[in-house]
């Protein structure tokens, strides 16, 4: 029986705290999201100025993947299969606000480009030079039973040697959550992944 040790690595971020493989890695609960991300960026010793142009969903996804990549660099064809509930609504609301009033009309391409959830997949692909399969799913809540067969399919058909998979949701300043995990074979039981997620989700 596989106990899930084939999950190479996982990261969980919520409420100002970042966990790596089950252990708390960084916490700044008192800071607003933007400052929390900047502090984590500095803590990790990252030098990547593009980070500061990203919207909050991309920052969240980027940071989770950075924490993981530090331990195990991704392969060129590692697929990205992400999901969330709020899509890109955080940036969507910002763009809508900029066009809502005819006399205060200031749509910006720098905001509009982030009105797609899969932009964060592009950001991670650029950062790690991943030429790989990308998919962004939307569910009501983290749904391993639907994500997992698709990841297994990518591995079984050799479309990807590994999959960076999980949940990256940014709705509002206080409602955000990331749970990313890296899988590289088809033998990981879904209940193990669900259990890892719930351990963190329920305790935060």
């Amino acid at each position: 029986m596989n106990n899930g040790s084939d999950i190479l690595d996982y990261c969980y971020i919520s409420k100002g705290t970042i966990w790596h493989n089950g252990a708390e890695w960084f916490s700044k609960e008192e800071l607003p999201f933007k400052a929390f991300m900047k502090a984590a960026y500095q803590q990790r010793g990252i030098s990547y100025p593009k980070f500061f142009k990203m919207d909050r969903l991309s920052k969240l996804a980027f940071m989770a993947s950075e924490v993981m990549a530090a331990q195990t660099p991704f392969q060129e064809e590692t697929a990205l299969v992400f999901a969330n509930r709020a899509s890109s609504l955080d940036s969507d609301r910002k763009h809508q606000h900029s066009i809502q009033h005819k006399d205060a009309f200031y749509p910006s391409p720098a905001v509009f480009v982030y009105t797609l959830p899969n932009i964060c997949l592009g950001e991670i692909s650029i950062r790690h030079q991943l030429f790989s399969e990308n998919s962004f799913f939307i569910f009501d809540s983290f749904n391993v039973d639907t994500l997992h067969p698709y990841c297994n399919h990518l591995i079984a058909t050799k479309k990807a040697p590994a999959v960076l998979c999980g949940w990256v949701d940014f709705d509002t300043e206080t409602e955000y959550e990331a749970f990313l995990y890296l899988i590289r074979n088809e033998n990981i039981p879904t209940h193990y992944i669900q259990q890892l997620y719930e351990q963190h989700h329920d305790s935060t």
């Binding site: 990205l80 480009v113 932009i119 650029i126 790690h128 991943l130 030429f131 790989s132």
Partner: peptide, 18 residues
């Protein structure tokens, strides 16, 4: 098959890589 360009978030790749 699908493949990312790993190049730019809004501009097409100059080499059409993906």
């Amino acid at each position: 098959a699908s493949c990312n360009d790993a190049n730019h978030i809004s501009g097409p790749s100059r080499t059409g890589e993906g």
